[in-house]
Write a protein that binds this DNA or RNA. Sequence first.
DNA 1: CTTTCATATGAATAAGTGTTCATATGTTTA
DNA 2: TAAACATATGAACACTTATTCATATGAAAG
Lengths: 117, 117
Amino acid sequence: MCIDICCDEKCIHEDIIHKVEHDLPNDETLYDLAELFKVFGDSTRVKILYALFESEMCVCDIAELLNLTQSAISHQLRVLKSAKLVKARRAGKTVFYSLADEHVRLIINQGIEHILE
Amino acid sequence: MCIDICCDEKCIHEDIIHKVEHDLPNDETLYDLAELFKVFGDSTRVKILYALFESEMCVCDIAELLNLTQSAISHQLRVLKSAKLVKARRAGKTVFYSLADEHVRLIINQGIEHILE
DNA sequence: CTTTCATATGAATAAGTGTTCATATGTTTA
DNA sequence: TAAACATATGAACACTTATTCATATGAAAG
């Protein structure tokens, strides 16, 4: 019942191979998924998201809070915005950023749960 | 009621600053969290995890399935194992890898949901 | 014990990324 | 209009990372 797809020994069933090939999302989706997680994969960006959990904030507030330059925060907010994790609202000279949706919180909480195991 | 922590204008309330500072996990946790998401932030690793959704697999099966070299897969499995996302089981010459727990599936599914919005 | 096979690993390279600095854009106020 | 301020952006740099190639390790079979 087993097939040999690579090694001498019979490793996994042919129907599993077909099932995986069928269920595997297309390359574009997988690429986008990795790109999304890449955005979460930087502690500065994670800190920014955590800060926005409480309230919307302007760029300089975040910079002050995290002890980083305004430029660094602005660059990272751009990345977060491109990934649709945060959204921006202009009020005069000031730009307020906030979480784009609740997925952000869910994903981060899942991550936290995994770490704390 | 507002304080000025950076700009001319009064941006956010002082109690929010205190709340954020209180709720923000410590630097080590935030670093670990970012490191975890970094692991998900590579399409090869995401593909490997997807394959393991169906069934445990040996290294050469995964390599064949994803059209990548055995070495590349082995290096990436090492990363996944360090992050405790997969576990290994030896059977003779063959090493079978499988998902370490269900968090993996949950995190990836949350990511997919965000993308498909 | 030697060969064979599956996997792991180290070094090298090419590509990607986060921060800083300098500066530009855009908005408000004098 | 000019000055002041918040934010955005481009270039440069140091640092990280994914893959490949060559080779080592570990296990089974002859």
